[in-house]
Every structure is written in structure tokens, then in C-alpha cells.
């Protein structure tokens, strides 16, 4: 029996204690996935840990070679932790790869060296080939379901619309668009005014056109075009959000009316007809409230 104070026992104890204080760095390699899709990232983590009291190692990381993969990012981090009451160090190398094509992706084997600069003692880790199976890009199931559902809805609505059109669409007395009834009435009034020209002179008619257009803008936009000068009314319309195009067109109509009425000039039939059509088109355009089936 060995007595606890005997030499062999002491030597054995020393070996055990010496073995506990010296631990080589350990290395652990992991991939976030062994199967992936094109352009779907895969991360390789290389974790090396050792007791802090051992050394402050420096690492020699080589240039990694790969097949059918693209290195996107490379980073490293270091942290300290306690293990059995003793401080340890963990160094982590993270590499992110993007598969290029479907098939097999490979991170080729490489050697990761380490050295203690103070003692020049070190070693190396042999990292084996890492293989990744790469599949073609797939549409997510949820999105696929949504697409199918949407397509089904559209087709269904289209079929309903065709049936509806075939049953009701040929009738001309059902309006296809929402109509502004005031503008509709105004257009009818304008057309009646033109029809009932009778013995009126062109100047008289131009006056009626002017009064009509002023009254129409006044009632349609709730601005005072009867008593306010045109530039001021156009400013009011601008404040109401009326488009620049429409304001410019109104200015154009009133400028023409003013010129024809007050410049002392005569008026050709084509000029008169042109003005008449422009007013008619303007009012007609205001009839349509929205372009949709009702």
C-alpha cells in the first residue's frame, strides 16, 4: 500500500496536478446548415478555447479555398468565461458563405495555426473539408399559397364579369360610369343653348357662353366666378386643389372668350365652332366622376 507521504505517490500526484494545469487549445468546427439553396447563406464557426493561464495565443488564419461558394463575410471574436472556477478564453472565427449554383458546395480543408508569442510554443488544427448540398431556389410555400389563392380570385372575378357583361352589358340605358348630375344637366343646357340659336348674333351667343361657363365653374367648385376677376378665381381654384392643367385650360377658354367678345374683331365660323366644342368637351369631361363599372 502506498503511503500518502511516499515518493511514488508524490510523483503521481505531481503528474496529475501538472496534467490539470496544462490544457491544449481545443477546436470545434460547425456549419449552420449542411443543406442550403442558391443565395441562402451558410455560416461556418470555428471555436477555439483554452485556459487563460496557459497563454495568450495568436492565430494564423489562412486564405480559405472553396468550390461553388462565395465568401461573403469573415469575422472573429474573443470572450472569457469560467470553467470549474478557472478563467478560460474562447476565440471564434465566423465565415459566411453564399452558394452559387445548385449541386455541391465545398469548403476545402485548411490548417489553422496558433502560437504563444512569449514562448514561441504553438500548434495547429486541421480543419477537414466541409460539404454543403445546394438546392435550387424555391418559392416559399406561404407565398405560393397566396399566389394560387390570388390567381384563383382573379379568374373567378373575370368569369363573373364576363357573365355579367353578357347578361347586362349590351343594354345602353344602364350607365357604365358614375355621373355628376349637375355637370350632366349643365351639358344638356349648353347643348340646348346652341340648338336654340335662333336669330341671336354671334356676340350674343358668346356672351351666353361666357355666362354659362362662369355659372358652371361657380356651382361646380363653389367659387364666385360671377363677381370676381378671372385671375383671382384661378387662385381660388388652385387653393382648392384643381389641377394646373385644368386651370390653364379654363384661363385659355376665358382668354379666347374675352378676345372674341371685346377685341372688336370678327369671328369665323370655324373659330366659333372650335370654341363651342372646347366648352362642350370641358363640361362633358366634368360629368364623369369615376371610371368604374357600377
Amino acid at each position: 500500500m502506498l503511503h500518502f507521504r511516499s515518493l511514488p505517490f508524490l510523483l503521481l500526484l505531481g503528474m496529475i496536478l501538472a496534467g490539470d494545469t496544462y490544457a491544449k487549445p481545443t477546436c470545434d468546427v460547425s456549419l449552420s446548415a449542411t443543406q442550403s439553396e442558391v443565395d441562402q447563406a451558410v455560416v461556418m464557426n470555428i471555436k477555439i478555447q483554452w485556459p487563460k493561464s496557459e497563454a495568450l495565443y495568436a492565430f494564423l488564419f489562412p486564405q480559405v479555398k472553396m468550390d461553388n461558394l462565395q465568401l461573403q463575410t469573415q469575422g472573429e471574436s474573443q470572450e472569457s468565461f469560467l470553467s470549474d472556477g478557472e478563467p478560460w478564453v474562447r476565440k471564434t472565427f465566423s465565415l459566411t458563405f453564399l452558394p452559387v449554383r445548385s449541386g455541391e458546395g465545398r469548403i476545402r480543408a485548411f490548417t489553422l495555426g496558433y502560437i504563444d508569442p512569449s514562448t514561441q510554443k504553438g500548434g495547429s488544427f486541421q480543419i477537414e473539408d466541409q460539404l454543403i448540398k445546394v438546392h435550387r431556389k424555391r418559392i416559399p410555400k406561404k407565398l405560393l399559397n397566396q399566389i394560387f389563392a390570388g390567381a384563383g380570385t382573379v379568374i373567378g372575378l373575370f368569369v363573373i364579369a364576363i357573365i355579367f357583361f353578357m347578361k347586362f352589358g349590351r343594354k345602353t340605358d344602364v350607365p357604365k360610369h358614375a355621373i355628376d348630375l349637375k355637370a350632366e344637366a349643365a351639358l344638356a343646357k349648353f347643348e340646348a343653348m346652341v340648338e336654340a340659336r335662333g336669330g341671336k348674333t354671334t356676340k350674343d351667343l358668346l356672351q351666353e357662353f361666357s355666362v354659362f361657363l362662369r355659372n358652371f365653374v361657380t356651382e361646380y367648385y363653389k367659387v364666385d366666378m360671377r363677381h370676381t376677376a378671372i385671375p383671382d378665381v384661378l387662385e381660388d381654384l388652385k387653393a382648392l386643389g384643381v389641377s394646373r392643367q385644368e386651370r390653364e385650360f379654363l384661363r385659355h377658354l376665358f382668354d379666347i372668350l374675352s378676345e372674341m367678345r371685346f377685341s372688336g374683331s370678327g369671328l369665323s365660323d370655324s373659330e366659333f365652332d372650335g370654341l363651342q366644342n372646347e366648352i362642350k368637351n370641358y363640361v362633358s369631361g366634368k360629368r364623369i366622376v369615376q371610371e368604374r363599372l357600377i
Binding site: 370676381t228 376677376a229 378671372i230 385671375p231 374675352s258 378676345e259 371685346f262 372688336g264
Partner: peptide, 11 residues
Amino acid sequence: RGYVTPDDVKQ
């Protein structure tokens, strides 16, 4: 303009 309009009078 080479002619007067009612708007000129109003303004």
C-alpha cells in the same frame, strides 16, 4: 392686351 375686358374694370 390691345383691348379692355370687364376683368380689367373689376380689377
